[in-house]
Amino acid sequence: MSDIIETIVYRFEELSETARDKARAWYRESGFDDDWYNAVYEDFQRVAEILGLNLKTRTVRLMGGGTRQEPCIWFRGFWSQGDGACFETFYAYRKGAPRRIREYAPQDTALHRIADALQAIQRRNFYQLRAEASHRGHYCHAYCMAISVERDSPSWQDMTADAEDTMIEALRNLARWLYRQLESEDDYLSSDDVVDEAIIANGYTFTEAGQRFG
């Protein structure tokens, strides 16, 4: 014979502060949208295009059986040694990048410095430098990017002595910039105010102790 058990459930705003903390912890662990970082990725793709990067893509299988192309961007974070972000790309000079990046992100001085560094090293090499970055290893940070640099000179002129190091550092700085954007987005989405708003908007219910019900 079946038993009927009645349980009183509470909306978030009805919980004690201790129970709310437990409800927030549940949401941060289980309630996050798996694609929370998409907006950051989209912004990065726009930044990459402005700077002259042509991000590589990979084929991703969809649940329905189809496929789609996604940019080769990876990250891991945000609390362990070795966490970071990296990407795979081809790079070539993009005219007007410093001006355009300032128009796109007028307050982001880190991006301005990256664009200026790329512009300066390209100028010293008659705008003929090209680079390729590929991911290597099991981690996802700036030093997991294998970066090769060459000068596409019709007269076979060598690149300047500082070209390779400057280019590599600029692309790694861009990976560090991407990681900071992801970390900031995670901090924002994990904040009490945003978590509380999401829990209330979704109408989740909890036990008196703050355990998710249903």
Rank of each mutant, 00 (worst) to 15 (best):
R136E: 15
G84Q: 02
D108P: 01
P71S: 05
Y104W: 12
Q157R: 08
R68Q: 13
A170D: 04
G84M: 07
S155P: 00
L178A: 09
V60H: 08
P98N: 10
I114Q: 10
M159V: 00
M63W: 08
N54D: 15
G66L: 07
A175E: 02
T67Q: 10
E103R: 12
I114M: 10
R99W: 06
D152G: 00
L51K: 04
R113N: 12
L111C: 04
Y188E: 13
T59K: 15
F90D: 15
Q181M: 11
Y91C: 02
T89R: 00
V47M: 09
S148C: 02
C72M: 12
Q128N: 06
F78G: 10
Y127H: 15
L182I: 07
S134E: 14
R136T: 14
R58V: 11
S184F: 01
A163Q: 01
D152A: 12
M145D: 03
G64H: 06
G137T: 06
Y188L: 09
Y179H: 12
L129Y: 04
S153K: 03
S155G: 03
S153E: 01
Q69R: 06
T160I: 00
E49T: 14
P71G: 01
R136I: 14
D116P: 03
S155L: 14
R76I: 04
S134N: 15
D187T: 13
G84I: 07
L55H: 02
D158I: 03
D108W: 02
V149W: 00
P71F: 05
L51T: 05
D83L: 07
Q157S: 14
I121C: 01
A110G: 05
Q128C: 11
V47A: 06
F44A: 11
A110M: 09
L51V: 06
R180S: 12
R100I: 04
H112V: 07
I50L: 11
G66R: 05
I121M: 01
M145F: 02
D152I: 07
K95W: 09
T59R: 15
Q81G: 13
G52R: 05
G65D: 08
F126A: 15
D43T: 14
V149N: 00
S80F: 13
G66C: 10
R176V: 07
S134H: 15
R172S: 07
R124F: 00
G66V: 06
Y127P: 05
T67D: 03
I168E: 10
G137Q: 12
R123Y: 07
R46D: 10
G64K: 06
F90M: 10
F75M: 10
R58F: 13
Q107C: 04
A92H: 11
D187E: 13
A163L: 02
R180P: 00
T89P: 00
R61L: 04
D162W: 00
K56F: 08
E150F: 09
R100N: 15
A175P: 04
G65V: 12
